[in-house]
Nucleic acid binder design. Structure first.
Lengths: 204, 204
DNA sequence: TAGCGTATAGCCCTTTAGTACAGGGTATGG
DNA sequence: CCATACCCTGTACTAAAGGGCTATACGCTA
């Protein structure tokens, strides 16, 4: 038996279709909530202060909890999952997705959207990494010296510091940088630093 | 049509039961791999060097990839997912789980075990929520305007651009920036940009 | 040998960035 | 009412960044 906790007038259409005999209640306090296999909590039209409260009460029932939002975001997903939800999806998620969520939860799993999953992965995957740069990436057209100078800039070095550490003049540093700017299509050292650092997140 | 790439003599029993008409091949190079909806890669009895190779070739087929291991670990799961796998499970996973994985992947999702999911969550869920900053981080001592200007710099904007977009003079932009430099202990806009971007990886 | 790419660097110039000093205004709380 | 914090801006001024033009030197290749 599915239970949906929601402020809405009636259950969202996809949910209704997925669970024809599901029951919608207006608050988390109803006793019959305890009987359901899975609890669905619809955050739509709920104030921030209420969300926390309802979520907590829904969790008290010791049942797997799905949080639904009409304006889903990664931040909200993260927050809900941290608080104990086992799934997070759009309030109007497709019927097949709703059914799949039930399946996963009944097997003791979690369910989150692919995009969020990828974000999770990215957060955890800090070290080496999967994909090198695309082999035709403009960065690879930089010469050795240009790459050296660019990487130094990407660590926040000034031209003078770079010149000293590389045993060349400041003028030469500028020359390498100018060339790098052109090749990479950036305007100045700040944009270069951002670009380089966005690259070196993935590769070794 | 399910394709299983494996070194084993024959496909694991649960997999065989889940996909009676599934096909097992001995390497990732077979042309018929391209026809399958989902590719299953069994790491059992594979050397480390081969794993990388097979995985890469399996991924080349542009099909969702499930990695199966007879000695699964969180580390391996993380590694495989980072490399592009969309699911990771035990080689002898239950039939119902195998079927569920197919379902999830066919809907564009990822699948990982509950335990691993919880670990992911724990890694990300360091503390309360939106901002993972240490609450006493110097960044929080920046005033509203200083934060705005700093974030703009962190996206690569010039003082003139910031001034125009914020409807203030370039002089004021410089004032906010100078203050931000001092508070954050950085020398110039490049170092500021790097610092800001290193922060905003975790939160928001 | 001539040509090309790379690395180096001088001179000189313009544009940005950044700081020092000196204010003005508006809130807010004691 | 006053102190304080924030926001805004002006006039300098110095420092750094960036680029145009030119030139030398090296190694490689046609």
């Amino acid at each position: 038996m599915q239970i949906l906790i929601s402020h809405r007038q009636s259950a969202p259409t996809p949910w209704r279709k997925a669970f024809p005999d599901g029951m919608k209640v207006n608050g988390p306090t109803q006793p019959l909530v305890a009987e359901s296999r899975v609890i669905w909590l619809d955050l739509s039209q709920l104030k921030l202060t209420q969300r926390q409260l309802w979520l907590q009460q829904a969790l008290d029932h010791q049942r797997p909890l799905v949080v639904m939002s009409s304006t889903p975001s990664d931040e909200e997903a993260l927050q809900m999952l941290k608080l104990g939800a086992r799934a997070y999806c759009h309030s109007l998620a497709a019927v097949s997705q709703l059914l799949q969520i039930v399946e996963v939860l009944n097997h003791g799993g979690f369910w989150v959207g692919p995009a969020f999953m990828q974000r999770l992965m990215k957060l955890v995957a800090s070290d080496e990494g999967p994909s090198a740069l695309p082999a035709d990436h403009p960065y690879l057209s930089l010469t050795g010296r240009e790459q050296s100078v660019a990487k130094a800039v990407a660590r926040g070095a000034s031209n003078r510091e770079i010149a000293q550490s590389m045993q060349i003049t400041e003028r030469t540093v500028k020359a390498h940088l100018s060339s790098a700017f052109t090749k990479l299509g950036v305007r100045d050292r700040v944009q270069l630093a951002l670009l380089i650092n966005s690259l070196t997140l993935q590769p070794a």
